[in-house]
Structures are given as structure tokens and as C-alpha cells.
């Protein structure tokens, strides 16, 4: 069983799973869990894009 993921889709899957656990474990009410999970997901996703542009700038 093997499957191929692109770099970005692998990062997004990572972000989805990690932010799910962070949201549930770091907040107490369901509404706060959802908000914090979404916040973590956005930070992960945007962080990957920012980091990739930084690496591009360093290379060029």
C-alpha cells in the first residue's frame, strides 16, 4: 500500500490532522475547539506558503 502526495497536499493533510488534535485538546468548549482548530489549520497552511516563498527568495 503506497500512495503519492504532492508536497503541499502532504502539508495540508498534516495540518488538518494536527489542527484537529490541537483544537480538541487545547480548548474546553466545542465552539472554541472549532475556532482554535481552524486557526491552527490556517496558520499551518499559510506558514507553509510563507516558508516556501522565503526559501525561493533565499535561493534567488
Amino acid at each position: 500500500m503506497t500512495f503519492e502526495l504532492s508536497h503541499y497536499s502532504a502539508a495540508l493533510l498534516f495540518a488538518l490532522c494536527a489542527s484537529t488534535v490541537f483544537g480538541i485538546t487545547q480548548r474546553t468548549t466545542p465552539k472554541d475547539m472549532l475556532r482554535y482548530g481552524a486557526y491552527c489549520f490556517v496558520l499551518f497552511a499559510v506558514g507553509v506558503i510563507v516558508a516556501s516563498w522565503l526559501m525561493w527568495l533565499i535561493k534567488h
Partner: peptide, 13 residues
């Protein structure tokens, strides 16, 4: 679900 998906996705990769 989150832990299983991560673990088996890791094995799949």
C-alpha cells in the same frame, strides 16, 4: 481518526 490517518498515511508514504 486524526491519529490513524496520520499513522497510516505515513506508512503509505
Amino acid at each position: 481518526l486524526a491519529v490513524f490517518v496520520m499513522f497510516f498515511a505515513g506508512l503509505g508514504m
